[in-house]
Design a protein around this nucleic acid. Structure first.
Lengths: 198, 198
DNA sequence: TTGGTATCGATACCTGAGGTAGCGAAACTA
DNA sequence: TAGTTTCGCTACCTCAGGTATCGATACCAA
């Protein structure tokens, strides 16, 4: 579930007073992806998501300040941490590219990603949330794993994610494996990873 | 102005009856880019664009069926044809990349592009318009100039445009020249163009 | 058991934006 | 002068994001 996870009430004053929140976050996330998958981002209204989750709309707005932040949390939950388990630089980058391509191909995930990204273009507040909560953790992880300077990592993310989202947005379909493979063959050598020649 | 341009009334029956349309398309395009630049895509409402152009909102909807199609026509007008004048393949691709990067950097153009792209994600009708009217001409031109198969040209467009839009969407600023240069250095060799190493 | 607090579902509502309908006036042709 | 189409204008419809309020409920503490 990615965030907070109560710290087993050890740190701060035991537990806040009042009726505790029911554990429906996961249900709401699932309903969000399902609704976005079935209706597209724009028609996946908060009313419909709430109905699909069997929850009142006000409950959603009590937990997330906007539809955009709900979707960002939903994507955080759907993505999870990057698997960075390759032995060499090349394998590491290639597996990261294939991982994000596969995630974006999952039903609802790519649409939700493209949709919230779109909203963020003309909503600076949401853009900061998107950059800080969704992009930053992966940027840090890649920075440490690859040893590349920040600017290069951001460029790497722009190329990989930008390409995948542009394909999805233009065609309505996620990028096929052959093209993902070509993306790997283009990007990895540029970043100094051997792709099989030594 | 890119489209139609009356054919000097030689072809079809002289001229349609009724009051002729006033030549305000260019004014509306300019007002669209200016408004999008100042307020962002979402807050650039059709009301505001009409006001900025000194035109009634109904006049705009008489000429374009939706805000999305207005913006697509506006972008067609702003982009114009690709300059494909390089001597070799490498120069040709590099100049095309620098050209679209520069266009997206122009005030309002990048925001309008990202905005309409965003709308298209959850609007299949607009997506077809975008693909057919905006992407297709450049795909054909690149296909003929480079001799690459369609799939490769579409991949080329996904990488270049996707990267530029992702950078703009995430940071709010267009890509700087140094990163555009790195994009060229990554893409051109992959497509078999020499970049200076014989 | 009683009081305090915060969440729950439900309903009603506000705002803003895309888009449409209908009007009289204006600009052109025949 | 009659016919046709665009013009600006105003009023309106629909839908989506987001807010306010209310009684009911679940928990804690005294």
């Amino acid at each position: 579930m990615s965030y907070g996870v109560t710290m087993s009430r050890a740190t701060a004053s035991a537990r806040p007073p009042g009726r505790p929140r029911s554990g429906v976050n996961a249900v709401v996330f699932a309903a969000t992806l399902r609704t976005v998958h079935e209706l597209g981002y724009a028609r996946a209204t908060v009313d419909r998501i709430a109905a699909a989750a069997g929850v009142a709309k006000t409950t959603i707005y009590r937990r997330w300040p906007s539809k955009g932040e709900l979707v960002v949390d939903c994507l955080l939950d759907a993505f999870g941490p990057v698997p960075l388990e390759g032995t060499g630089r090349a394998e590491l980058m290639a597996s990261a590219i294939r991982w994000i391509a596969a995630k974006i191909s999952e039903p609802g995930v790519g649409d939700a990603f493209a949709g919230v990204f779109s909203d963020a273009v003309s909503d600076p507040a949401l853009r900061e949330v998107l950059a800080a909560r969704l992009q930053e953790p992966y940027r840090v992880a890649l920075h440490e794993a690859l040893g590349e300077p920040d600017g290069r990592v951001l460029f790497f993310i722009d190329v990989v994610v930008g390409t995948l989202l542009h394909r999805l947005g233009m065609t309505g379909e996620p990028m096929v494996d052959a093209d993902v493979a070509e993306l790997v063959e283009m990007v990895v050598p540029h970043f100094g990873g051997d792709t099989g020649t030594g």
